[in-house]
Computed example of a mutant assay.
Amino acid sequence: MRLDMASLGRSNGTLWFVVFALMNLSACASTPDQITWIENGKTTRAEIVSRFGDPDLVETTKTGTMVTYQSTASKRPLPPVEIPTVQPGPLGTTAVTSKPIERSLGSDDSTTPKSEWITHEIHIRYDENGVVQDAYH
């Protein structure tokens, strides 16, 4: 009996493909749906913001406001930024100190309190009163 290495490699590759595909499907199935608690026509903007923080994108349309929350699972808090400053010291010496810089406009320092990390991008549409009309991934 002769062992054909080419066919063995193909069947082994097929096996790895099936194992990889099953692992990906099981990972998707085990991710909890983060918007099941949101009730259309009942949940308010304040409730959403208290749970997810401020949205990453806000669009105002004729039918209301659409907000988008991007995945925060991979975001890390940004380290503090300091600038060294040189000041004259006694007897012609200099003193170097660090001065912290406050983050602003466009910086994501993750200071907005969030009670959970967002694993998938979430889109929420509010009416003119700030009540959820639609929420989806």
Rank of each mutant, 00 (worst) to 15 (best):
residue 105 L to I: 13
residue 58 V to L: 07
residue 129 N to D: 15
residue 38 I to N: 02
residue 4 D to R: 02
residue 106 G to I: 04
residue 123 H to S: 13
residue 116 E to F: 02
residue 106 G to E: 03
residue 107 S to Y: 10
residue 21 A to Q: 01
residue 135 A to M: 07
residue 31 T to L: 15
residue 54 D to W: 10
residue 82 E to H: 05
residue 128 E to D: 15
residue 104 S to Y: 06
residue 16 W to A: 09
residue 43 T to V: 04
residue 87 Q to M: 00
residue 55 P to H: 06
residue 104 S to Q: 10
residue 23 M to C: 11
residue 75 K to H: 08
residue 22 L to K: 02
residue 24 N to F: 09
residue 47 E to R: 09
residue 29 A to K: 14
residue 57 L to S: 13
residue 47 E to L: 03
residue 58 V to P: 01
residue 65 T to F: 06
residue 53 G to V: 08
residue 128 E to S: 15
residue 86 V to C: 00
residue 8 L to Q: 04
residue 82 E to C: 00
residue 11 S to P: 00
residue 51 R to E: 10
residue 80 P to Q: 12
residue 64 G to P: 04
residue 72 T to I: 04
residue 58 V to F: 00
residue 38 I to G: 03
residue 9 G to T: 06
residue 69 Y to M: 06
residue 53 G to D: 15
residue 18 V to M: 02
residue 118 I to N: 08
residue 29 A to L: 14
residue 125 R to E: 14
residue 127 D to G: 04
residue 10 R to M: 02
residue 19 V to E: 03
residue 75 K to P: 01
residue 3 L to Q: 11
residue 30 S to F: 13
residue 27 A to Q: 13
residue 54 D to Y: 12
residue 92 G to L: 02
residue 26 S to Q: 09
residue 134 D to W: 12
residue 107 S to C: 06
residue 98 S to C: 00
residue 49 V to W: 07
residue 74 S to K: 12
residue 104 S to H: 10
residue 13 G to Y: 04
residue 124 I to K: 03
residue 93 T to K: 06
residue 11 S to K: 10
residue 113 P to V: 15
residue 52 F to H: 03
residue 65 T to M: 13
residue 17 F to G: 14
residue 70 Q to F: 10
residue 60 T to I: 15
residue 46 A to L: 07
residue 119 T to H: 10
residue 8 L to D: 02
residue 15 L to E: 03
residue 81 V to T: 10
residue 123 H to K: 15
residue 91 L to A: 14
residue 39 E to Y: 05
residue 106 G to V: 01
residue 53 G to I: 07
residue 66 M to A: 14
residue 32 P to T: 02
residue 84 P to L: 00
residue 63 T to L: 07
residue 84 P to H: 02
residue 68 T to H: 09
residue 43 T to L: 04
residue 112 T to Q: 12
residue 74 S to D: 11
residue 3 L to N: 11
residue 126 Y to V: 07
residue 2 R to Y: 10
residue 111 T to L: 12
residue 9 G to D: 11
residue 112 T to E: 12
residue 101 I to G: 04
residue 6 A to S: 06
residue 71 S to A: 12
residue 89 G to W: 00
residue 7 S to L: 09
residue 70 Q to M: 06
residue 108 D to K: 08
residue 63 T to K: 14
residue 118 I to E: 08
residue 52 F to E: 09
residue 31 T to F: 08
residue 105 L to P: 04
residue 81 V to F: 13
residue 108 D to P: 00
residue 43 T to I: 05
residue 35 I to W: 08
residue 36 T to Q: 14
residue 2 R to D: 02
residue 69 Y to A: 06
residue 133 Q to K: 15
residue 24 N to W: 10
residue 93 T to E: 04
residue 51 R to Q: 11
residue 125 R to M: 14
